[in-house]
């Protein structure tokens, strides 16, 4: 059973002067997949993701996200994606409620939609007790889940997570992956970058980037077989050498 393609990238390249950050990468992601985008720091993950979400223009190559061309139809792409960065990017001096209201507002949600969304998120994340406290006082794990929920406030087809578990302890990381699964079960595509190799095991498929190129792309199990390794960590180490 093969579902429709939601991200399609062909020979995508980004150069900064002489330096090629992303070197002709080609891949596709199916709808509803949890797609792991792995690589060491500086391998070109963030540059690639920036091209996909319309923050950076490719030097060469093309790509389609949610059915729209990333260069010519960037505005349409932006409407159909959610994005969460490693900084969790919430407004510290606003309450969770106000954060939800603001982000709902900039995506053009109606007052009623915002109201139901707010209720939904606060209930789901069990944040009711702190709904009117400023975000700065929340524990990191709560902020992380709130940021994730907010990145999906406008019900996007795809959500891009750029190192969403950076700096969080293992227990909280596991809990966060639970919420990623929940989102995926609702049919949402999750595109996630990480450098924690244990997290790679949670993904449906992973790609591994080394020095601007995608060196491997398959399900975690197939990759382990292919590289004759017992864990993703080993796969990665073998690739990086």
């Amino acid at each position: 059973m093969h579902s429709e393609t939601i991200i399609q990238v062909n020979g995508l390249t980004k150069r900064f002067g002489d330096f090629t950050a992303v070197n002709e990468i080609t891949f596709k992601v199916d709808k509803g997949e949890i797609f792991g985008f792995l690589g060491a720091n500086g391998a070109g993950k963030t540059t690639a993701i920036k091209m996909l979400i319309g923050l950076s223009k490719p030097t060469k190559g093309s790509g389609k996200v949610a059915g729209f061309d990333i260069e010519k139809q960037a505005e349409h792409v932006k409407k159909n994606i959610g994005y969460m960065s490693q900084k969790f990017s919430l407004y510290d001096d606003l309450t969770p409620k106000e954060n939800i209201r603001f982000y709902g507002g900039i995506y053009g949600l109606s007052r009623n939609e915002i109201k139901t969304k707010t209720k939904e998120i606060l209930e789901e994340l069990d944040l009711k007790s702190v709904a009117n406290k400023t975000v700065v006082s929340l524990p990191l794990g709560w902020k992380q889940r709130l940021a994730f929920a907010i990145s999906m406030v406008h019900d996007p087809d795809i959500v891009f997570l750029d190192e969403p578990t950076g700096g969080v302890d293992p227990k909280v990381r596991r809990e966060f992956w639970e919420t990623i699964y929940q989102a995926s079960e609702k049919g949402r595509t999750v595109f996630v970058t990480t450098h924690y190799m244990d997290e790679a095991e949670y993904c449906d498929r992973v790609s591994i980037m080394v020095a601007g190129k995608i060196e491997a792309l398959d399900t975690p199990n197939n990759l382990k077989q292919q590289f004759n390794a017992t864990s993703m960590d080993e796969v990665f180490l073998k690739l990086a050498r």
Partner: peptide
């Protein structure tokens, strides 16, 4: 990092 989020929005 919120500026990034704003720029990703439409």
């Amino acid at each position: 990092g919120t500026m990034e989020i704003l720029l990703v929005s439409p």
